[in-house]
Simulated scan of single mutants.
Amino acid sequence: MKRLPIPEDVTGEEIDKDVRQELQSLPKTLADDVAKNLVMVARLIDEEPESAYGYSKVALRLASRVAAVREAAGFAAYATQKYAEALAEFRAARRMTGNVDLWPVMADCERGLGRPEKALDMAGAPEVQKLDKAGQVEMRLVAAGARRDMGQLDAAIVTLQSPELASSSIQPWTARLRYAYADALLAAGRESEAREWFAKAVESDKDGSTDASDRLAELDGVEFVDALDENTGDQDGPEGGPEDEED
C-alpha cells in the first residue's frame, strides 16, 4: 500500500500523549510516520471517513502490533460501516490492552452486522459494570438501538429510562441520550412526549451533536425558507434542512 500525502502542518505531536507513549516502542522515524497517519485519521474521520480509513490502513501496515493503531483502524472502519473489520480491530485492541472501553462500540458493530441479539447479550455482560459512566450510557444507547432493530419499541423506551435520563445535570452524553429517547417515543406514536424530549435535547446540545432542533421544528410544523431568494416574495420557499437521522 502506498503512502498517503501528509499536510505540512501535521507533525505527529498532535496525538494524545498516551498514544505517543505507546509508539515509543517503535524506531523514532517509524513512530513519527505512524503518528502523522493517526493524526490524519482523527482529523478526517467525521467529515471524510473514507479518507480517514485510508490513513488508518497505512498506520496499520506500519504498526499493527500497537493497540492504539488497531483501535484507530477500528473506528475508521466503523465510520465507513465496515462493521466486521471494525469488530476484528476492536477485539485485537482489547486483547492487547485488556481494556473494556471498546465494549459498547463492539456491541454496536454486532448491530451493524444484523445481530441485535448478540448486542443485547453484551449489554448484560459483566464487562458493562467495569465501564465508566459515559461507557455505561453508551451501552444503554446501543441496547435500546438493538431493541428497536428487533421491533421492540416499548422495550427500547424502557431501556433508555434511567437516572442519567432523568438528571437535570448536563453531561457530554445528555443530548444524545435525550435525543434517542425522543426518537423512540416518536416511533411509538407518543408525539407530545417526543416533542418534550426533543426540546430537552436541544437545551443540552451545546455543540450541535444531534439534529434535535430540526426534529423539533419539524414537529412544530416549521418550514425553512431561503431568506436570500429575492424571487420568493410572499410565497413559502421549499422546505429545507437535513433529513431525519435515527440515533
Rank of each mutant, 00 (worst) to 15 (best):
F75L: 07
A42D: 13
S56K: 02
P49Y: 06
R70A: 15
A76D: 08
L87W: 10
V34F: 12
A35Y: 02
E89Q: 15
R61C: 08
R65P: 06
A86K: 04
S51K: 14
E50K: 03
A77F: 07
E47I: 09
A92S: 14
D32R: 04
R70P: 08
R94C: 00
E89G: 06
R91F: 00
E48C: 08
F75W: 12
K82P: 10
S64Y: 10
Y53V: 08
L62C: 08
E89I: 08
L87E: 15
M40T: 07
L38R: 01
P49L: 03
A86H: 06
S56D: 06
R61H: 10
A73P: 12
Y53C: 13
K57M: 15
K36E: 07
V41E: 00
A92F: 04
D46Q: 11
E48N: 13
A35C: 01
A84H: 11
A76M: 03
T80N: 11
A79L: 06
L62W: 01
A35Q: 00
D46T: 02
L38C: 04
F90A: 07
A52L: 00
P49A: 00
A67K: 12
A86Q: 02
E85R: 04
A63R: 01
A42Y: 02
A59L: 01
R95V: 13
Q81R: 11
Y78G: 11
E48Q: 14
M96N: 12
Y78Q: 06
